[in-house]
Simulated scan of single mutants.
Amino acid sequence: MGRGVRERTYRGRRRARAGCAVLVAALLGVGGCDAGGGSDASGGSSSPKPSPTPTPVWDPSPGSVAAVGDSITRGFDACAVLSDCPEVSWATGDSAKVDSLAVRLLGKKAAARSWNHAVTGARMADLAGQVARAAVHRPELVTVMVGANDACRSSAAAMTPVAEFREQFEDALRALRAKLPEAQVYVSSIPDLKRLWAQGRTSALGKQVWKLGICPSMLGDADAVDAAATSRRARVEQRVADYNEVLAEVCEADERCRTDGGAVYDYRFGTGQLSHWDWFHPSVDGQARLAAIAYRTVTAKQD
């Protein structure tokens, strides 16, 4: 090939490449080309691909609910003295008077898609076993309300140590994650037991029922206000606060766990929200208030 021909060919190729570059810049998405019309070096489009929208970790509309915990979640003393009444449970009950969390979330499917594995008298040490039973159903949301019985012991000295309470809760969450790695967990704070004592001690019937063994560490010698009794109740009150701090800290370390932010502890139960048999456990109305708190927490927008 002669020199003049080679120079004309080179100039032609440069003009072709320049024209292709302008075309690519204009179209933003057409594959790169050279003088021969081929693709770019990578063999693909030169335009940036949009980043996928991240899937939220928390789903405000889970399709099934399993409850674990203690007597409160069993509706104890809400319908009859010293008896469970799970139909009015804040978590999974079917009573229209309560409008439980499961009913609010699942509607007519609640009966088939919710399960109550709470046990009256349960303490934190029992939670891992309850979680194992609940996991069989593969629930999308697990509700937890436990810890009151760790403070409600025969005496203040018999309360579950805080470090032990923490270890047991961590063990239960690990057991849950081993079986249900993507399940969501709602953790309720423990109610203010001292406030329940202050409200219930106005009832002569309630104080008689307390003598049967309901929360002796707080409710024993209900009318006593001497230094010893006051100190004992203060110790129980502080232990509940410590337990609630543990619940919040352990839950915070799990991205699929939410607490109520202390809403149940802060709720000022009045006599209308307490059982008219023991004036300590939630009444039907009290259960409804717990359901409302749980629903607000579960359905709140993710931070």
Rank of each mutant, 00 (worst) to 15 (best):
S42I: 00
G43P: 02
G43I: 04
G44C: 12
S47D: 06
P56V: 02
V57L: 14
W58Y: 08
D59K: 14
P62C: 06
S64Y: 06
V65T: 10
A66T: 03
A67I: 03
V68G: 02
D70C: 08
S71M: 02
S71K: 06
S71Q: 02
S71V: 07
F76G: 00
F76Y: 14
D77S: 15
A78L: 00
A78R: 00
A80N: 12
V81Y: 14
L82H: 14
S83Q: 15
S83Y: 06
D84C: 11
C85N: 11
E87D: 14
V88E: 09
V88M: 04
S89R: 03
T92S: 13
T92P: 12
G93D: 01
A96V: 09
K97E: 14
V98D: 04
S100L: 05
S100C: 09
L101T: 03
L101S: 05
A102R: 07
A102I: 07
V103E: 02
R104D: 05
R104F: 11
L106T: 07
G107L: 10
K108N: 14
K109Q: 15
K109D: 14
A111L: 10
A111M: 11
A112K: 15
R113T: 09
R113E: 07
N116S: 12
H117W: 07
A118I: 01
V119G: 00
G121Q: 11
A122K: 06
R123C: 10
M124L: 12
M124D: 02
L127S: 01
V131F: 09
V131W: 06
V131G: 06
R133S: 08
A134W: 03
H137C: 03
R138T: 03
R138L: 01
L141V: 02
T143C: 09
T143L: 04
V144S: 03
V146Q: 02
G147K: 07
A148G: 13
C152A: 13
R153D: 01
S154A: 14
A157E: 10
P161G: 06
A163Q: 13
A163V: 09
A163E: 14
E164D: 13
E164W: 07
E164R: 15
R166S: 09
E167D: 05
E167I: 00
Q168N: 11
Q168C: 04
Q168H: 12
Q168M: 07
F169R: 10
F169Y: 15
F169Q: 02
E170G: 09
E170V: 14
E170S: 14
D171K: 15
D171F: 03
D171E: 15
R174P: 00
A175D: 07
A175V: 02
R177K: 15
R177C: 06
R177Q: 05
P181R: 12
